[in-house]
Simulated scan of single mutants.
Amino acid sequence: MTGSADSGEGRLPARRPVTLRDVAEAAGVSVATASKALNDQGRMTAETRTRIREVARRLGFRPNGLAQSLLRRRSFTVGLLTNDTYGRFSLPVMAGISEALVDAGVSVFLCNVEDDPRLGQLHVEAMLEKRVDGIIASGKRLDRHLPVTLAGLGVPIIYAFTEPDPGSIAFVSDDAQGARLAVEHFVALGRRRIAHVTGPESFMVVHQRAAAWRAVLAEHGLGVPDGFYMSGRWSERFGHEAVAQLFGGPGEKPDAIFCGNDQLARGVVDALRERGLAVPDDVGVIGFDNWEIVAAETRPPLTSVDMNLSALGREAGLTLLSLVDGKAVEPGIRKLPCRLVVRQSCGRPPDG
Rank of each mutant, 00 (worst) to 15 (best):
A14H: 12
M44N: 03
R266Q: 15
G276Q: 03
A212T: 05
L309E: 02
L217T: 03
V341W: 01
S310F: 01
S235C: 12
A126N: 08
A151S: 03
A32D: 02
Q208R: 12
G79K: 10
S202L: 07
A32V: 01
N308M: 09
V206Q: 10
V172L: 15
Q344I: 00
T48M: 07
R62V: 14
R53Q: 15
R339E: 13
A37K: 05
A151H: 11
G28L: 13
L222N: 02
M204D: 09
V102D: 13
P350E: 00
L12D: 09
V243Q: 01
L309W: 07
A244M: 05
E25F: 11
V216K: 05
G105W: 01
V324Y: 05
D84S: 05
H240N: 06
N261G: 07
A211N: 08
N39P: 03
P300F: 08
G10Y: 09
L264G: 14
S75K: 12
V93N: 07
R51F: 06
A126Y: 06
I135Y: 11
C338D: 02
E9L: 11
A244G: 13
G134Y: 08
G352R: 09
D289P: 14
A215Y: 08
A176L: 03
D306C: 04
A182E: 12
R15I: 11
R58P: 01
G96Q: 00
I333C: 05
K253S: 04
P337R: 10
S4G: 13
P280A: 06
P166I: 02
A100L: 07
I135S: 10
G96E: 01
A210K: 14
V172R: 14
L323N: 04
G105C: 02
Q41H: 09
T2H: 13
G42W: 09
A170V: 09
R58C: 08
L264E: 02
Q344H: 14
G65T: 00
L146V: 03
A34H: 06
A32Q: 00
T162M: 03
G105F: 04
L70V: 01
D116T: 04
M94S: 11
A256Q: 00
A211H: 00
T2G: 15
